[in-house]
Write a protein that binds this DNA or RNA. Structure first.
Lengths: 213, 213
DNA sequence: CCGAGATCGTACCGATCGGTTCGATCTTTT
DNA sequence: AAAAGATCGAACCGATCGGTACGATCTCGG
């Protein structure tokens, strides 16, 4: 032991407060998220993960209890983060629901082009684990997307907003799968065109434009 | 050792031929496929898998070399089987491309309702493993779907058949993801409606019906 | 200045994993 | 009848896994 000391995730500890109870947890989550996303939940062991993110196993286990606990917390945080990210893109797109929908797929399209893109982390996780909590996080995640898309569908005056929203959700998740496993080039734009076509069809043949509100 | 003997996967050996060289391999694949699909590729060990399907580890390893070898062979066989299954549904739907497209999603919809449905096995596998061979099988699988849908798009006289086919592929994979993780009820029909709407839009605004041969 | 507590690195644990080996049994071939 | 070869069950192997324990270090509250 000639080099102990200097701990806490390599981050300088702010002089105030009690070494931060929640901060360590948040820092672990932030550092572990991209590693677990790239390597896969079962593609890396706790020991290697800890070494990569610079935290001891004891600290990780005290904050998350088990590896599954870490995974669940990570997925939950990631779901909330990307949902908020997409919602902000919609909010920034103005009042026209067509622009809002286009913003969704433009945002996704940028993500697809990212070299680290490996598909939806929540869907990937649910696809490989039977853990009920993981599946629940994924279902909730899709629910968030559905809510966002339902709002767009309603504002667009779709005849059946829940139906259109679910169809758009399929397009979102399908574009993500196709981009991950069959090439990302152009996928965002192709999906955007399809989404706008669906919206036009739903608004045109159904309830027309300018839904009450 | 009071009960050795009586081997070969519990299947009665036909009296002719050399105990079947290929037959054992096919039988292992057939038996292992649903187990690996339900439990997940990493969710079951080779020992338990062998016990469940009634084959010894030595036999399995002689036929497939490694667990990854078994996985690849299984995914390859499954991809060919389900692609053929979908192609046959299309072929049985008559000459109208709209009927053919509807048949695709009706067929998928039935699959979604199956209690053992857990999403697309190839996509699930690629989502959890970095193994290049697995990712290749998945890419090829999506390519088969794309070929099928391209044929439909061409026969429908779409203005841009490759574009429409890729959008329909997103719908297929998206419906599969949504059915797996957000409830299967109605997903097939909802996706079918969306697909037909996309086809109408692509044919209507683009090249009209009866695309040139 | 001294205890409480968070963190570190390392060693350790039992379980499980993928994969190999071996003796015995049964079938087919020669 | 004897050789060849496929299969079985079980034992075995080294590696890795998730998780725990321990002694040491550092910070903070009192």
């Amino acid at each position: 032991m000639d080099r102990t000391g200097r701990y806490h995730l390599g981050m300088p500890v702010p002089k105030g407060s009690t070494i931060d109870p929640e901060r360590t947890r948040a820092a672990i989550l932030k550092a572990a998220t991209p590693v677990l996303y790239e390597r896969g939940l079962d593609g890396i062991g706790v020991a290697e993960l800890c070494a990569l993110i610079g935290v001891s196993k004891e600290t990780l286990y005290r904050h998350f209890g088990t590896k599954d606990g870490l995974v669940e917390a990570m997925l939950q945080a990631r779901s909330e983060r990307v949902s908020r990210w997409l919602a902000e893109a919609v909010a920034a797109a103005g009042d026209d629901p067509r622009d809002q929908l286009a913003a969704v797929f433009d945002t996704l399209g940028e993500w697809y082009e990212d070299p680290v893109f490996r598909g939806c982390a929540m869907v990937n996780a649910a696809a490989q684990h039977h853990i009920e909590a993981v599946r629940a996080v994924t279902a909730r995640h899709l629910g968030r997307y559905l809510d966002l898309l339902t709002g767009v569908a309603e504002r667009a005056g779709a005849a059946d907003p829940p139906l259109l929203a679910r169809q758009l959700l399929m397009l979102v998740e399908g574009a993500t799968v196709v981009a991950a496993h069959h090439g990302a080039a152009g996928t965002g734009e192709q999906a955007r065109q399809a989404a706008l076509a669906l919206l036009s069809a739903a608004a045109g043949s159904g309830g027309g434009r300018g839904g009450g509100g």
